[in-house]
Design a protein around this nucleic acid. Structure first.
Length: 648
DNA sequence: GGAATAGGCGCC
DNA sequence: AAAGGGCGCCTATTCC
């Protein structure tokens, strides 16, 4: 390997000559950036750059002949000319490997480099797809594991370093990226190569753009509307609460805080409230379900009123803390004072997106405060929001995979939530709830009896009734589990796009031996969550002789297996739809703002809103047949000035 | 005093 | 008792 620091025209020209020699070359690419750290609400060991103030320090390009060129741009002493860097960038071949394309593509675009001609390939995503894990895929880790190469140690910031001082480090990274990419490409199945190249990597580029553009939130209006409402509610509710909880009149220390589960125990002990189960630590539950029950069923008028007040005060405080104070802290750290939520492609085990700082995926959708919040997400000047939701996407995919009358129902346009409701003799709302919890997620009678207020026996009967109504649903679950269980040594499932999730829970006894630490973690979680005696053995049924905790683990694995196929495949579908939309959309007219699992929020210049809506609907729906589904996939777009106007 | 945990709750 | 999947963030409390 040979590392070149491009500080002279001769070096630059050597790079261009080498690149021109072989048009089929694929390169490895890595950027270096400097800037202030992003402020986090929770402390992190390594706070990431605040991209709003970050700058490109230089970039390195590795060639297949193991020559690597570094273009220093903002270093002490000698740098390359920006003209050379631009020419080098333009001369790159079509395919470029980078480790974390979301970052590199965003930084390059932010610095004014045109990235449209690049077909990125992300070696981090390749490792994720190949190994089916979302940790231990850092460049450093993989360079050691796959290439048996130690990365040079690095200390401190690049800001005060010369190009020569960082040369070895940055060139290693680009070369490792290229060689890792080539290695993983050989390992990937044809389907996963397609997923990497045509969906996940282009999706990463779009995520970078979504993060960079951010979303405008009218915080002043939010304070004036939602904030004022919450303050008003809090003042009156808190006053009444204080009066009712002033156990020793005149002694402020005798008040009970609605947010303190510990202090609220008092109300169960003195009979004010009726208990509804205990937490893992043995305390009475004080959550929403318990309090809603007490709102109706507490013994005294005071008890009922206190339950209601407690819920109202908690809601108001949550709104103030999360959606007013929290948002201010987030927005204040960006030069444009917008919301720049981070969107994570590799966090959720099913392949869904996750979001943080702030979490843009938990914006209020129902309740007293919801309209005010979403009305304050406003399209930019001269633009309109265009948003489309996939209709019942997970239930459709479940029906597709289960087939039979379930699939036929969708083909015939039957309302499945109503059908379930009829079979249960309950409301459509409860039919919908039931479909999710017990058809897709595999919930049991205990949960159902609590959720719907049935006795345990009733719940068992109702679940049996639904199983009879949709025999293919149970058959599908069993087929999946039987098939997945045969995969040894570690059972795994695949989503429609071929993404992998290991499900060691399905074979607890083997997991225990192979990876005691990971097993123990899940073991501990289960015994705590479900209050299982760790030594209890199952006496009867299919699992006789097993530890009860292992049976719980196995059943958890069964739910994970089925759900990952459904939820993960829905994520695959949404990503494909977004990538195809983004590729066809004219970026000077329209863009994706964010996505919330089955909803894609776009912004478009007002005059182009109709065509944006049409294009969005077309690509979101076409993703269905592209992925081989026969069940109708529907996405209905709406146009409006605020997120509230286009939602639901 | 800061870090970690628990309980709780927002979303799909 | 046969237990719903996937996330992130807040406050209160406890630990060190």
């Amino acid at each position: 390997m040979k590392f070149h620091l491009v500080t002279t025209e001769a070096k630059h020209e050597r790079f261009l000559r080498l690149l021109a020699k072989d048009e089929s070359w694929v390169v490895g690419f890595d950027t270096e950036a400097v800037g202030p750290a992003r402020r986090y609400s929770k402390a992190r060991d390594k706070p990431f750059l605040n991209m709003g103030y970050a700058a490109l320090q230089g970039f390195s390009i590795a060639l297949p002949n193991e020559e690597v060129f570094y273009y220093p741009l903002r270093h002490r002493k000698q740098n390359a000319k920006w003209r050379w860097a631009e020419a080098a960038w333009e001369a790159l071949p079509l395919s470029v490997w980078a480790h974390n394309v979301k970052f590199d593509s965003r930084l390059m675009e932010q610095e004014g480099f045109n990235i449209d001609g690049v077909e990125w390939l992300d070696s981090m995503l390749a490792a994720w797809l190949h190994y089916g894990r979302n940790s231990e895929i850092s460049l450093k880790y993989l360079a050691k594991e796959v290439l048996d190469r130690e990365s040079p140690e690095w200390q401190g910031s690049l800001i005060d370093k010369t190009g020569a001082e960082v040369l070895e480090y940055v060139c290693h990274d680009a070369l490792n990226t290229l060689q890792l990419g080539e290695y993983l490409w050989e390992k990937l199945t044809p389907r996963l190569r397609k997923t990497l190249g045509e969906v996940e990597t282009p999706f990463a580029v779009e995520l970078g753009r979504m993060e960079a553009r951010g979303i405008k939130l009218d915080l002043e209006k939010l304070e004036a509307t939602m904030g004022t409402l919450a303050d008003g509610n809090l003042t009156t509710d808190q006053a009444e609460w204080d009066e009712l909880t002033d156990i020793i009149p005149g002694d402020p220390g005798s008040y009970i805080s609605p947010n303190s589960a510990k202090q609220l125990q008092e109300f169960f002990l003195d009979g004010t409230w009726v208990e509804r189960g205990t937490t893992s630590t043995g305390a009475f539950k004080t959550g929403k379900d318990t309090l809603e029950y007490n709102e109706k069923n507490a013994q005294t008028e005071t008890g009922r009123r206190l339950a209601e007040l407690c819920l109202r005060i908690r809601a108001a405080k949550k709104v103030k803390g999360t959606y007013l104070d929290g948002f201010y802290e987030e927005m204040r750290q960006w030069p444009d004072r917008r919301i720049h939520a981070e969107l994570h492609q590799l966090v959720a085990r099913t392949g869904r997106l996750s979001s943080s700082n702030p979490n843009i995926q938990n914006q209020l959708a129902r309740g007293e405060y919801a309209p005010f919040l979403k009305q304050c997400y406003v399209a930019d000047e001269g633009e309109l929001f265009v948003s489309a939701d996939y209709a019942q996407i997970e239930l459709r995919l479940f029906a597709e995979l289960a087939g039979g009358t379930l699939l036929q129902a969708f083909l015939d346009g039957v309302d499945l939530h109503q059908r379930t409701a009829d079979a249960l003799a309950e409301s459509r709302e409860d039919g919908k709830k039931f479909n999710f919890a017990f058809l897709i997620y595999g919930g049991g009678p205990g949960k159902a009896s609590r959720e719907f207020g049935w006795t345990f026996t009733e719940a068992k009967e109702k679940i049996a009734a639904i199983a009879a109504e949709y025999p293919e649903a149970q058959a599908f679950r069993e087929k999946v589990i039987t098939r997945v269980l045969r995969r040894a040594p570690v059972p795994f499932v695949r989503t429609k796009a071929g993404r992998l999730r290991w499900v060691p829970e399905l074979r607890p006894n083997e997991w225990k031996v192979r990876d005691p630490e990971a097993y123990q973690k899940k073991h501990d979680y289960l015994i705590k969550e479900y209050k299982i005696d760790p030594y209890e053995e199952v006496q009867w049924g299919d699992f006789a002789g097993w530890l009860a905790v292992d049976r719980a683990m196995r059943m958890s694995g069964e739910r994970i297996a089925v759900n990952t196929i459904i939820q993960g495949s829905a994520a695959d579908l949404a990503k494909l739809g977004m990538v195809n939309f983004a590729r066809e959309a004219d970026r000077s007219l329209m863009r994706i703002v964010t996505m919330v699992h089955d909803e894609v929020l776009c912004s478009s210049f007002s005059g182009a809103a109709q065509s944006c809506a049409k294009l969005l609907k077309q690509h979101m729906e076409q993703a269905g047949p592209f992925m081989g589904y026969s069940v109708p996939i529907l996405a209905e777009p709406q146009i409006g000035k605020t997120w509230f106007d286009v939602h639901g």
